[in-house]
Design a protein around this nucleic acid. Structure first.
Lengths: 211, 211
DNA sequence: TACAAACTACACTGTACGGTGTAGTATAGC
DNA sequence: GCTATACTACACCGTACAGTGTAGTTTGTA
């Protein structure tokens, strides 16, 4: 989707555009939308404030672009995790753990899932119809597909793959993300243990029935 | 803790104080801290802006009071849910479901857990040392105690009650709260189903070993 | 009724910020 | 060199809002 305003579409450097996006993303995700001034975004991007307005029209539109870009990054990251760990593997438990760890680890970059959710929730009123819902559904899709297959091959007992995906997410990264982080980043030992335990509980509940 | 500023402690109407608190709570939780002006709080409380400042000193301090009050309300609400459903019961599954439904239902009032979490997360930088952590721990305590007992009486197999409490919360209300809500409130059929399924998965994973 | 505390109404200050307008500079293609 | 486009620097406007000061009004109480 094109999020630029009509009046002035700069053709030239997609470079500047990228720098503005990155700066806005960093600031919005860490400081929040209201607390980030356009002046600050411009300064961080190494660009004049006027250029920001020439590219994105107004602050609202910039937010929209940031949310779209970050959503996309999050989805790509999840897809990557699936490719890396849930296509070919030997130990299901170990693979699920690695998958989660990769997701959680990547939340300290341009695809911070939790920061995005927070931003979208707070700013929901000013965003087009339920961005959150779309993101929420899209995020699950890949996992649902894998779980469906696991069900078919008898690796798991999943009568409702969508619900199973929700449960899996809840027990692992959702739990990790909702954990108060002291140091500012995830990835510590406690988080790893939480993921491991979450995966085990999931597998215990969704193990194939042996009867 | 007394959150009033020193200079003028009004003795008279704790009534006004309550009205200001309620107004600030409603506005901060629904609109967010930055988006709520002190003028709006005063108007909603039916009180002059000056009175707000006389009682609470500044906006920051008002936020602090709101967070403390709401935290307290949330904890009381959880304790109430435990008393109502997890002390004496016949069917564990049914009781856990009722417990969760009560928690989720009460999130449309003065003890909106999720709104509080959101507020504290966004405003974390301006709040005393990790309010979030304290709230997070306190919230689990009651549940941990119940699960510990369930473990002792053989109702569940819980080697680590704290982790079990986290898993339970994740599978039920955490999941429900993170669900995008369209209508503005929870409590619909989909939420009920999610709670039911979450409780079942929890019980499947933590059932006593029959071996 | 008299007095003090509680409270309101309101004017006012300072500041931060979204957004615009514009003159001037850099740059690339002709 | 000429010209158009991209961009900066900067002044500027309007507004929203935190917080204060104060004069005057209400209200509880002796």
């Amino acid at each position: 989707m094109d999020t630029t305003i009509n009046k002035t579409i700069r053709k030239g450097s997609a470079d500047k555009r990228g720098k503005i996006m990155a700066a806005a993303r960093d600031l919005f995700l860490s400081e929040g939308f209201d607390r980030s001034s356009v002046d600050a975004v411009a300064a961080k991007a190494g660009v004049s404030k006027r250029t920001v307005y020439d590219y994105y029209g107004d602050k609202q539109n910039l937010l929209l672009a940031v949310v779209e870009e970050t959503s996309s990054a999050v989805l790509v990251m999840i897809e990557q995790g699936i490719s890396d760990h849930l296509r070919d593997f030997e130990d299901l438990e170990q693979s699920l753990i690695l998958f989660c760890e990769q997701i959680v680890a990547s939340a300290n970059g341009s695809s911070d899932y939790m920061a995005l959710i927070r931003l979208v929730m707070v700013e929901a009123a000013n965003l087009p119809d339920s961005f959150l819902e779309r993101l929420d559904n899209a995020k699950e899709e890949g996992i649902i597909r894998r779980f469906t297959e696991f069900g078919q091959t008898g690796l798991l007992d999943v009568p409702d793959p969508q619900m199973a995906a929700k449960h899996f997410a809840a027990l692992t990264f959702l739990l990790a993300f909702n954990q108060p982080r002291k140091t500012g980043t995830w990835g510590d030992e406690q988080t790893k243990r939480m993921i491991t335990e979450g995966v085990r509980v999931f597998l215990r509940a969704y193990a194939p029935r042996t009867g």
